[in-house]
Design a binder for these strands. Structure first.
Length: 365
DNA sequence: AAAACGGGGCA
DNA sequence: TGCCCAGTTTT
């Protein structure tokens, strides 16, 4: 089948089965010539980096409700944005999101660049997001390559070279299929196909618009593609985490450094995380009647497993009287945050797990 | 070129 | 458990 036929077949399928998503323009509006808001496209695409649609949906709605345009987001407090991002992961995305919004707002008059090169120069926008925004928001014939596209192309054209080696050839194949008209719809169509039909396991070839031309299907190896280079095993790291609550209910929290793991996020003080045995003589963050709960907070990151021994303390009213403030006021360093100013939803998942384990053991009387 | 960087859903 | 996901940045 020719490339033009493949694109046409896919676009017809997309017209019938494309998903209705909060950041998409509905079919009726699209027929009337409406284009999606570049701000909404950019925001959704950043959220969708290494993240599933199901996880993104509600975050996208909350962000656009709080910050309807790029100027509003640019004017937001860092802590407010990090708090709303909590639980979505890859927190460097949120920091770069803010940086990018502030550049677009202050230096570009609130208008996103309409070319791949212009977009690519902004913080947090790499090859994928630049192509996605250019194609979807500005109708540029950019080739969008994500995990879905790689999988679909590897199957359609029976590419047996393992990733990441195959990245180049797969991008080249995807580029040949990119049509000059409606490239944004085409890009979303390939990704929708990968997300709903051409899935990693048990692809639904029976209802696939590319069932007939699919070379991997003909060879019966579709479920084995794309091949991937073997990955390293995850080591286990150990450490201690300290959760303290004052008698007036305030929590002892810290704002993590901008760079590194969970950068810029709210959390509980802790020891270093080391491979092998837990730290022998940990130094608590403040002097108090610390108590070993015997419980462990378990969490897995991209490249290691983590086990943190949970210590808790109930401390007197005199502790840390100076400088008390809300979580947003906790710009950096550590301090007591009044219960009324602390939202557990501002915590990344690891810290939330520790909180859920500690809370029933600490009173606010 | 390789490593760092989350979290949840699924088999 | 291990694998996967609408990747980008840093080293």
């Amino acid at each position: 089948m020719r490339d033009e036929e493949l694109s046409a077949t896919l676009l017809a399928w997309y017209g019938r089965h494309g998903r209705d998503l909060p950041w998409r323009v509905g079919p009726a509006a699209r027929l009337a010539g409406a284009r999606p808001d570049p701000y909404a496209v950019w925001l959704s695409e950043v959220m969708l980096q290494q993240t599933t649609v199901a996880a993104v949906r509600d975050y996208f709605r909350r962000f656009t409700a709080l910050w309807p345009d790029v100027h509003a987001l640019a004017a937001a407090e860092d802590g407010a944005v990090m708090g709303e991002w909590a639980g979505l992961g890859y927190y460097a995305r949120a920091r770069n999101l803010l940086k990018c919004a502030r550049v677009v707002s202050a230096e570009l008059g609130g208008r996103f660049p309409d070319t791949v090169e212009g977009l690519r120069a902004l913080p947090g926008i790499g090859p994928y997001t630049a192509a996605a925004v250019a194609a979807i928001a500005f109708d540029r014939p950019a080739t969008v390559v994500d995990g879905n596209v790689e999988r679909v192309m590897s199957r359609l054209f029976l590419v047996e070279t393992p990733l990441p080696q195959a990245k180049g050839p797969l991008t080249e194949l995807a580029g040949r299929l990119t049509p000059p008209v409606h490239p944004g719809d085409h890009a979303q169509a390939v990704m929708d196909l990968g997300a709903t039909i051409c899935t990693p396991r048990n692809p639904a070839c029976g209802i696939c618009p590319w069932r007939d031309p699919c070379a991997a299907r003909a060879a019966g190896v579709q479920a084995d593609l794309p091949r991937k280079a073997p990955k390293k095993a995850k080591p286990v790291r150990h450490g201690i985490i300290w959760v303290a609550r004052r008698d007036d209910g305030a929590w002892f929290l810290e704002r993590r450094p901008e760079t590194g793991l969970l950068g810029g996020m709210l959390g509980w003080p802790g020891s270093d995380w080391v491979e092998g045995a837990p730290p022998a003589d940990p130094m608590p963050p403040l002097s108090a009647g610390w108590q070993d709960t015997g419980e462990e907070v378990r969490h897995t990151f991209t490249h290691f497993h983590l086990r943190l021994r949970l210590w808790i303390a109930q401390v007197g009213p005199q502790a840390g009287c100076a400088g008390d403030g809300g979580a947003d006021e906790l710009q950096s360093g550590r301090g007591f945050v009044p219960a009324g100013a602390f939202r557990p939803s501002d915590l990344p998942t690891l810290m939330r797990k520790a909180f859920d384990l500690a809370r029933p053991r600490l009173t606010d009387d």
